[in-house]
């Protein structure tokens, strides 16, 4: 299975990096709203089947290592 985990700051957490990127967009006259969020994508492959048990393990990995639940949210995509 191919897994893609997307991690980004929670909505109410300030993202200074995103704000700087937003200001750069404006300086290029790109018509985006200045509220930009810079997150990260973590991609990996794993042997096995997409079962509820597997998703439980994956959620634990996301909460323990790949994201910090105090400041970040995550979601993932699983493809064969």
């Amino acid at each position: 299975m191919n897994i893609r985990v997307f991690v980004n700051y929670k909505k109410n957490v300030l993202d200074p990096q995103g704000e700087a990127v937003g200001r750069a967009m404006q300086s290029l006259n790109f018509p985006a709203h200045p509220h930009v969020r810079v997150g990260k994508t973590i991609e990996f492959t794993v042997d096995g089947q997409d079962t509820p048990e597997f998703r439980k393990t994956l959620d634990k990995l996301c909460n323990d290592l790949l994201s910090n639940p105090v400041i970040e949210d995550y979601r993932y995509e699983i493809s064969q």
Binding site: Y9, L14, D15, P16, Q17, N68, V70
Partner: peptide
């Protein structure tokens, strides 16, 4: 220590960048 859960909260990028 924050990442370990031994202290509450988290530290993010300085707002001044």
């Amino acid at each position: 220590l924050c990442e370990s859960g031994l202290l509450p909260g988290a530290l993010i990028r300085n707002n001044c960048l």
